[in-house]
Amino acid sequence: MNLSLHPLILLLVFPGGLFLMNIGLLYEWADRKLVARFQSRVGPRWFQPFADTVKLLAKEEIIPNGVHKFMFQALPIIALTGALTAALYIPMFGFEAAFSFEGDLIVALYMLSMMTLSIGLAGANTLSRFTIIGATRALTQMFSYEAPFLLALLGPAIAAGTWNIGKINTFTGENIWLILAQPIGFIIAVVGLMGKLELPPFDAPEAETEIVAGALTEYSGRGLALFHIGKNVELVIGLTLVVIFYLGGIANPIEFILKSAGLFLVVSALQSMFARLRIDQTVGLWWRLGALMGLLQLLAIIFGRYLGEILR
């Protein structure tokens, strides 16, 4: 499918801006509901995240003493725009990406990292102890998760022989699901995504029982709402990326919904199955296991391709 819409609409309404924010909130609801059902609870009703966001947006934004005011207000916006921009390069919902060029995978991933970076800066900006520890942890976690996640996404890219997300989508749609060909890559991608989004059990940077809300402790009102929306958007993008790369791509909206739902079920089950890892455990686990396995996988792929070429 190829829709030709005005770039401004692409940017502000669909698939960027409004639509993405709403679908993000819907994803949050789905996440909370699924986790609740796994925990034998009823869970929130569908409009809860919307209501939360509206409430937060309507509330007063308190700027604590001793912060850099401009940074404090700009960081949530940067985080959100980063996430939204990344969405433009990704074929959302079965439609083609709004923009694409050779190598947009790298740009998208870079944009996704803006979020964590902003959270880290936001935490370091305030004077509270909790935020500073949260920021340190968030940045530590970013450094340990970015690499394996990237490696995991590189696998399919190398297999497809392109850095263009749209082309990878077509490639995975035509071939067998890469989850079968590169199971390790899939696991690393999912877990890496959870670590990236600070979902449990990798939520040490915002562990409420230790450091209240981590880097975002001092945020309230609009800033907090924007961060939340940004995170939800990132959840949408992350899941879509994994679906595109490992679950046979998305050719139409139905396929998108079904595959994302299936992946979502796995992610929320993983969220509710483990105890929170300490930051040193998370980092250790990833550098020792994740990165190594990612590299092995990559080597195997390269070797396989090489072998294929020789045979051909």
Binding site: Q39, S40, R41, P201, A207, T209, S272, A275, R276
Partner: peptide, 16 residues
């Protein structure tokens, strides 16, 4: 204790 460990599922089950 499970909640402090960030194991909310176990927390919900025990309280159930």
């Amino acid at each position: 204790a499970a909640h402090e460990a960030g194991f909310d599922t176990l927390f919900m089950y025990t309280w159930r």
